[in-house]
Amino acid sequence: MHRRILAGDRLIAAFLVGCALFNYPLLSVFDRHAVIFELPLVYAYVFAAWAFVIGLMAWAVERRVK
């Protein structure tokens, strides 16, 4: 039971992190002409943030709580 509640809280946290990362104003910080690792900054940022949120969700539901 305890484990379920924790996993649920982590998912909600992932949701909130995602909401913040995917939207204005954080998005606008990366919304400019710049190149990182040969990729446009905003393109790299959105995919990196996206992968990060998915990673968070996977961690939340798959990890066994000790």
Partner: peptide
């Protein structure tokens, strides 16, 4: 993606 985080609920 965001909805799936809440999908559990």
């Amino acid at each position: 993606t965001l909805v799936m985080a809440l999908g559990w609920f």
